[in-house]
Structure formats: structure tokens, C-alpha cells
């Protein structure tokens, strides 16, 4: 068996393959799935497969743990809704919370951390004030960091609720303002879909594109397997219910300047998870796709990240994507000085 995350990808893609695993392989698979935050998705995927009795409780635990994550995420979203009622603004849920609130396949078994919401840029300060009134507090009262966030990032500095100990990130766009592509946040808000609760989620194409933007712009591809699993599940569900999905997706990718990102992630998710994708949008395979795959699978059977060099290369790249060089230097310098 290969000593990397390929076994996890295989099990998600073709659950029946687990029937051939022995004890040691199962132990590897569980460690890798936990490290990639995909254990809940895997457990759901394996429902109905005859797994060894030693593994059953591990999978059951994972399902129950993600059930709880789901309930807590919906509760946090509802707390935010109640705090913001008087403002009567469009509050758009993002990422994991959006998937569970809209009851999408991508939310099944998903682990969910912070609450991410998007509001119109001109509502930011009013939203901030209401959240502070309702018991959220700044995580770190540091004027430099605050100024940094406000000037250059795509969200308010994170807030944490003083009693529930849960974080909220309030965004007004989907990417750092200094990053290359400029997704049209106004258009995303405009097209957002209202749920029964009164909260909103992005329209399908925008939701998928936001997940894609997150994969490439917001880090070093860490957690990329989970992110691409979201993308796979969103695509399968959206393409099935709407014949015009691919056309709409192409148009929205253009609008948000995310066409190359869309193409790359369609190729990656098709390679990894066998996602049925529109070939026109995916474009021709590139040599660098393999580098990405290599990087995404960089985890050994003990659950450790390996191939540090690839990781580091991606990490540096992702910093450059986010901030112009001078700004990065200033940011790091301020950090070093304070340390």
C-alpha cells in the first residue's frame, strides 16, 4: 500500500476498496482521514459497507462528532442571525456552515470550525457593533493587527464569543483585497439565495467558486483534500439538478476573474475523485497539475505531513499571492519585532 493519502482518496472515491484493507492499513487510513479532517465524510461514505468490527466504533464516533459540529454550526449561525436582526441586512453564510444550512451533500459529515459570514462592505461597521453588543469580543486587541486587517484583508479581525467560545469571521469579499483576482462581491451578495431561517447562502456557481478561491488564495493548499472533496460534492449535486449549471459556472468564473482557478480545480478534482466535469471549463491538462496532486497527497500513514519541500514552496507562493512584496516584508518585520 502506498504510504500517502492516496488510500483516503481511493476510499472516498470507491468505498468498496476498503474491503481489501488489513488492520494496519485501516489504522493508517484512519490517521490520514483525521489529519485531513475527512474522517466524518469517510464514515458517511462507508455507510452500508461491511467494515471490520474493530473499525465500526471509530466510524460511528466520527459520524456523531460531525453531527454535533453540524448542530453547533447551525446554532452559531442562528445566534448571529438574532444579533443582526435589527440591521435587516443580507447575511450570507459561507463554507461549511452554508453547506449544512442549505442541506447540501457537501455538508454531510463535514467538520466545521469558525462561522464565516459575508455582508455588504458598507454594513461592516454596523455589523461589528451589533456583534460586540451581543457578546462577541476581539480575539486580540492589537491596533496594528486591526489596522492590517481593515486595510488589507477581506474580513474583520476575528471575533470570539465570550460565553460560547466560538469564533466568527465577518467578510465583505472572498479574497484579500491585495490578491490578484478580484471576485465581484457585490454580485455574489446580489445573487445570494434566501433560506427559510432568513439567512442567505451563495447561489450554486458562486458557492463553488468561493470554495475554489479558498483552495488557492487562502493558504498553502493545506486541507486541500477536504476542500477538493467539498468541490467534488458541490459539482455532483449542482450539475445534476441544473442543466445550465456549467454555463452559469463559466459565466460567473469570468465575472469573478477565477477562470484559471476554476480550470485547475476541475482538473484536480477529476483526477483525485473522478468528478464528472465540463471539459471546456477544465481545459487541457498541465504538467504542473502533477505537482499539485503530489502536494495534496503529501501525508504518510502515521498522519504526518511529508515532502516538506513541496509544502514550503507552496507556502511561499501563497504568501505572494496574498500581498504585494513590500507589504509582506512590513508585515513579517512587525511580527519579528514583536516576537
Amino acid at each position: 500500500m502506498m504510504r500517502n493519502a492516496q488510500s483516503l482518496v481511493d476510499a472516498l472515491r470507491e468505498p468498496g476498496m476498503v474491503l481489501s484493507l488489513d488492520g494496519a492499513c485501516w489504522t493508517d487510513l484512519i490517521s490520514i482521514a483525521r489529519a485531513e479532517s475527512l474522517i466524518g465524510s469517510l464514515a458517511h461514505r462507508l455507510t452500508g459497507i461491511e467494515v471490520p468490527e474493530q473499525v465500526q466504533p471509530v466510524l460511528k464516533d466520527a459520524i456523531q462528532a460531525t453531527d454535533l459540529a453540524r448542530r453547533q454550526a447551525l446554532w452559531e449561525a442562528d445566534c448571529a442571525r438574532r444579533a443582526l436582526t435589527s440591521l435587516n441586512c443580507k447575511t450570507v453564510l459561507m463554507k461549511g456552515t452554508a453547506y449544512v444550512a442549505a442541506d447540501l451533500d457537501a455538508g454531510v459529515g463535514r467538520s466545521i470550525g469558525d462561522l464565516d459570514i459575508m455582508v455588504a462592505r458598507d454594513e461592516l461597521s454596523a455589523v461589528e457593533e451589533l456583534l460586540l453588543d451581543a457578546g462577541w469580543e476581539w480575539v486580540k486587541p492589537d491596533p496594528y493587527d486591526d489596522q492590517y486587517y481593515r486595510d488589507h484583508m477581506h474580513e474583520l479581525p476575528p471575533l470570539i464569543h465570550r460565553e460560547r467560545d466560538r469564533m466568527i469571521d465577518v467578510h465583505h469579499t472572498t479574497l484579500p483585497l491585495t490578491a490578484g483576482p478580484t471576485p465581484n462581491a457585490g454580485a455574489m451578495l446580489e445573487n445570494a439565495v434566501r433560506l427559510d431561517s432568513g439567512l442567505y447562502v451563495m447561489a450554486p456557481a458562486d458557492m463553488l467558486l468561493h470554495s475554489i478561491a479558498h483552495l488557492f488564495a487562502d493558504g498553502d493548499l493545506a486541507g486541500g483534500l477536504r476542500n477538493l472533496w467539498d468541490i467534488d460534492q458541490l459539482i455532483r449535486q449542482f450539475a445534476q439538478v441544473d442543466d445550465n449549471f456549467w454555463m452559469e459556472l463559466g459565466a460567473r468564473a469570468k465575472l469573478h476573474q477565477l477562470e484559471p482557478h476554476l480550470a485547475r480545480s476541475l482538473r484536480l478534482t477529476a483526477l483525485l475523485y473522478g468528478t464528472p466535469v465540463c471539459e471546456n471549463l477544465a481545459g487541457p491538462a498541465k504538467v504542473t497539475d502533477n505537482l499539485y496532486i503530489h502536494r495534496l497527497l503529501a501525508r504518510d500513514g502515521w498522519g504526518r505531513e511529508n515532502r516538506k519541500f513541496t509544502r514550503q514552496a507552496f507556502y511561499i507562493r501563497s504568501h505572494w499571492l496574498r500581498m504585494p512584496p513590500l507589504m509582506l516584508a512590513r508585515h513579517l518585520w512587525t511580527k519579528w519585532r514583536k516576537a
Binding site: L68, R71, Q72, L74, W75, D78, R164
Partner: peptide, 9 residues
């Protein structure tokens, strides 16, 4: 004690 199912609190 009041256990609130929606929040788990």
C-alpha cells in the same frame, strides 16, 4: 438544569 438541544448547551 435545562439542556438545549439546538445549541448543545
Amino acid at each position: 438544569l435545562i439542556f438545549q438541544k439546538s445549541s448543545g448547551v
